[in-house]
Nucleic acid binder design. Structure first.
Lengths: 226, 226
DNA sequence: TAAAATCTGTTACCATGGTAACTAATTAAT
DNA sequence: ATTAATTAGTTACCATGGTAACAGATTTTA
């Protein structure tokens, strides 16, 4: 890919959009602070415990951040797509090691920007600083959200929360699943069979209907406006 | 408290230590950007959903960040003590609302510094920027740590993790408890009675001994160097 | 120092949800 | 097109841990 393509990509990126063209160009032309890597589907982009020294920007594909324990249980923390960046909260830490695995869900292209480049941009460009702070805040929010989602909740409660969230997004009682049930189970941090069982129970209780690609909310008051 | 006391306090604060005396003085003298509040024991410093507009620095006392659900179950995310600051990860968010309750464990004195003051310091002082970024990173780390600690773990595993952690801190098989069992249960996000039961089981299994103020590791290989 | 408030341990009861072991149904690959 | 791989649903079994209801111990407060 040509430098010009990267620049065009960054010009519309939420984080870099306020950095002048000339500055972005300078970064690409005058330094080794930036590199780009392609990954095949299902490959490890960063291992747990690996040192983080770059801010990674997803140029193509979908990337998962997952906690995988000794037994192989998976908890998907978040999914990053094109334009998203990762590692901002690690880069300047005094323990800058990935606490979880970063894995490509599809084939992916990642742009790596070195720590110092980010620090320089924070200093030289107020809007970049604001964008960066806002961005890492929203990542932290994601983490608190996950804590709330998984702590002290029954599977049924987790499912209802998921349905609420999707209902708001899709604005329909028939919720299309953009992922497999297996992936949903990993997102909720539970066993696939347990999800299956609870969905069946909820169907039996007349709360929902479901098939392979959607869940339909039958009992409308499952949805609570918050 | 006199301005001079605040300045002295901030001069030794990890976050503000690199800001020149004159600049800190300026902040106090020329603006309404800073204020100080005292709280009694067990009072709410910030409600969940309240808007965050200041960085809060603990000048005296101990403060808890807790997730409290409808049923009253408590999960203590972290404990902040004198010198710690809170809210850094919220201040610049586009959804700057406290996701959890902030509560004083003891009587406490909190210094509130307005958002713009922090942003200005980030811009004008490279070391402050670095300190601030490092600080919010460590707060994010805390959150990932909590996710790991609570997700898909049995109570026994949680207890063993806690003992491991404390063993490293105290460097002794006899671990002094700096908190009540009730508080420990809240830290682990479990019921007090369940903690009590599991501790008893572990004693019966010859893994530990315990009394009101300490837990002694009997089976040394509970501790695994990681 | 007495009373009130908190903390602690215990235990019977039982709902939740992980495990394992299958079968069927889809989807992807050769 | 057929084999291989992945996804999905089901269910018996049972460990984990929440609930509730006590009794005793300890600490705090008046």
């Amino acid at each position: 890919m040509k430098t010009e393509n990267y620049i065009q990509f960054l010009k519309i990126n939420p984080l870099f959009k306020d950095v002048p063209y000339i500055e972005i160009k300078y970064i690409f032309e005058n330094s080794t602070d930036i590199s780009c890597t392609s990954y095949r589907k299902n490959s490890v982009i960063h291992f747990e415990s690996e040192k983080c020294s770059t801010l990674d920007i997803v140029m193509e594909g979908t990337v998962l951040v997952q906690k995988i324990d000794e037994k192989g249980n998976i908890l998907t923390i978040t999914e990053f797509i094109e334009g998203d960046n990762m590692g901002g909260n690690l880069l300047f830490s005094n323990l800058p090691f990935y606490p979880m695995s970063v894995i490509s869900k599809t084939s992916a292209v990642i742009l790596h920007v070195k720590k110092d480049t980010i620090l320089n941009l924070c200093q030289s460009n107020l809007n970049f600083l604001k964008n960066f702070l806002c961005d890492i805040s929203s990542k932290a929010n994601l983490l608190t959200g996950k804590i709330k989602a998984i702590s002290q909740k029954t599977i049924r409660e987790s499912i209802i929360d998921f349905l609420n969230y999707e209902y708001c997004l899709q604005n329909s009682y028939k919720i299309k699943l953009s992922m497999t049930k297996k992936e949903l189970a990993e997102k909720l941090g539970i066993q696939r069979t347990s999800l299956s069982r609870e969905l069946s129970k909820m169907k039996k209780d007349g709360l929902i209907c479901f098939d392979a690609h959607s869940i339909t909310i039958e009992k409308k008051n499952l949805i609570v406006s918050k």
